[in-house]
Amino acid sequence: MRPITPFLWTLFGAGGTIAALLFPVHLVLSGLAFPLGALEAPSYDVLYGLVRHPVTRLYLLVVITLPLFHWAHRFRYTLYDVLQLKHLYRLIAVLCYSAALLGSAVAAYTVWRIP
């Protein structure tokens, strides 16, 4: 069987790069500036119009799923190293990647079902 580690590491790398490039601006806008009124938030209709565009859908799918796998991979190793849980290797791996898969599935379904 092909070991899957290099593939998971690729997801980790891609997700880390996407998060590094795009999360600061998204978090500042969606998480802080718009809700707190520091910047005038675009109206619901404008945002909804954006989200319906096929390019935006693909963008959102990538920007949500890959960073989830980045988290799964990195957090798994943090648990091994910091809490010395190497003996729970399989359990931790299954839990982390399953959580990322679940989040990705929800994201894919949501993006797919946008009217």
């Binding site: 880390g16 999360f23 969606s30 920007v63 989830l68 990195r74 929800v106 949501t110």
Partner: peptide, 20 residues
């Protein structure tokens, strides 16, 4: 930082679902 990367992805997902 990976924990917050994961949370930020969930925030985007939440925002998207709210929009939809």
């Amino acid at each position: 930082t990976s924990v917050f990367v994961g949370l930020c992805a969930l925030l985007l997902l939440w925002h998207l679902r709210a929009l939809v």
